[in-house]
Amino acid sequence: MDSCVKITNEWDIVAARQLGRNVAKDLGFGTVDQARITTAISELARNIYLYAGQGQVCIEKTEAAGKVGLIIISEDQGPGIQDLRKAMEDGFSTSGGLGAGLPGVKRLVDEFTIDSTPGEGTLIRAIKWLR
């Protein structure tokens, strides 16, 4: 199964969230968690499209300590994030959007890590555990 979607245009955002929704459904997530996962993927994919131009989003099953979950890995070789702390603040946006992006995604999932180097790119891992 192809679990990654390359993000190069707006349509890929739709493809990424459709993939996420299917995986979430297969893993047995409820409707609310499906919406959380789909939304998180949409936000991450859109960030890639808006800021990095291209990159990819991978969605996989993950297991740890007897729990099953879904991991979203968003990766790009874009400009990176200049001020991580600021990017994680509510209401901060450099694109004129709602500024709900990254902190919003963090609230939608159970685990969230971000790794970004200016000039090199950004790697985000977000996990939602099956309850």
Binding site: V32, Q34, R36, A100
Partner: peptide, 12 residues
């Protein structure tokens, strides 16, 4: 409901 919850969690 699922949409309302995700919107609120996103901070919208």
């Amino acid at each position: 409901p699922a949409v309302a919850i995700t919107l609120i969690e996103l901070g919208i």
